[in-house]
Nucleic acid binder design. Structure first.
Lengths: 235, 235
DNA sequence: GCGGGGCAGTTTGCATGCAACGGGGGATGT
DNA sequence: ACATCCCCCGTTGCATGCAAACTGCCCCGC
């Protein structure tokens, strides 16, 4: 079954997508080793293709390649996380500025449906919910038609899920859905300033909730827990 | 001579840098074929390493890999150029906002020296001048300490030189140096709004001069010349 | 003269083989 | 008991081999 014809040149891409998906689904947690031959054996390809996929993923910042020591799923630091969200802020600001008042009817419909799907998944399916929250941002980016922005936003959203996996509290995407809806409303009525403001607030709230949540009155053990995790210690 | 010890794991990177440099120097013009074995023979490595470098370069947008047909130096369209500069605008805005009033004395010194070098090269050495103009932007980005922004600005500046190589008029980087100096002045006195304004103006003037320069009253042959070049025609 | 089909040379796609690096664990010496 | 050294095995780094795909060319039929 499922014998994919697999034209020449498609298999490398397939390996890349398979690994990327596994990482984003956290089937491969940050820090996991990624040995070339076991992956190749599992996917039915040679180490050459696995290596090519790993090179691509390392360019995207999803895996880290340590010379002579193998590849692991990236384990970005808190500081990298802050840098990443700062870049997202800049790029997604461009996205909403480009889109404000420019959405076509089918695009509005697609966004509304996406938000509806987010609400449907909310509370029920945690991993789907997180994935959809990210995809809202990539969907917006794709509507700009700007290939460069699309690529970077995709990359940053993907890396953001690594950050949230490492440092985010559970349920940290709670209020996101309503914020998405508000952004869409402002885009529809061409209230550019408000749309930008909402997007900045949205991203900032994600960062503060996820990245620096243990500042006020937390238990010291909770603080250390995240550092321990970041250093590969602890349970 | 020049027997580089070339530790294991360094050679792939070396091939990547060599090719990147050749492309940015326009020793390899946009559209040039990049056959794996002749490159490998020339650099003294196997096709495997060349292929890895080409994959990296294609991720950076400097090379286009056509399945079963080999790699060529990227030949971005005018539209891609506009997209690229839009993204630069967004990211470099973040750069100046981050840097405004934050420059240390050594950093100011380094920037002043860089601008001096730009002025020294101006008019004398065209290719050096272009390279330094780009490096001013990457230098600013590097001073933010934000690895994500550094990476993206580097990538976008590199791709910008492809765009300028294809569509820019000669001498299009004329006024850039004084604009660089103005930006630095505003950063020093923490006039953030002005620094942002100057940077936006600077990048916009590059795009309009380079990307859409043939709108007003040009000779039809000049207009077609760029399209011919873009299609691999003409002399 | 002109268009189409097929053959040969060239180049990519991918697997595999071999050497070298690194890590873990046991043996050895103090 | 503890530290050190060294060997062995697993894994990576890279070259090479082989099959498939593309290119251009020539020959043949019209």
């Amino acid at each position: 079954m499922a014998e994919k014809a697999a034209k020449s040149g498609m298999r490398a891409q397939a390996v890349h997508r398979a690994l990327k998906r596994a990482i984003l689904d956290q089937a491969l947690a940050p820090g996991s080793k990624l040995p070339e031959d076991s992956i190749g054996e599992r996917l039915g390809v040679s180490r050459t293709l696995v290596r090519e996929a790993l090179v691509r993923l390392s360019e995207e910042g999803l895996v880290e390649m340590r010379p002579n020591k193998g590849a692991v799923v990236a384990r970005p630091s808190l500081e990298e996380g802050r840098h990443l969200f700062a870049a997202r802020l800049a790029l997604e600001r461009l996205v909403v500025e480009s889109l404000s008042g420019q959405l076509t009817a089918p695009q509005e419909k697609q966004l509304l449906e996406h938000i509806a799907a987010e609400e449907a998944a909310r509370g029920r399916d945690e991993s789907t919910s997180i994935r959809l929250a990210g995809e809202f941002h990539t969907l917006l980016a794709s509507m700009t038609g700007n290939a460069v922005v699309i690529r970077y936003v995709n990359e940053l959203v993907a890396r953001s899920s690594l950050i949230l996996a490492l440092y985010g509290r559970p349920h940290s995407s709670e209020c996101a859905v309503s914020e998405h809806r508000e952004i869409l409303e402002s885009l529809k009525v061409r209230d550019t300033a408000n749309a930008v403001r909402l997007m900045l607030h949205h991203l900032e709230s994600i960062t503060t909730r996820a990245l620096l949540p243990r500042e006020q009155g937390g238990d010291i053990r909770d603080v250390l827990a995240s550092y321990a995790a970041a250093e590969g210690l602890g349970s």
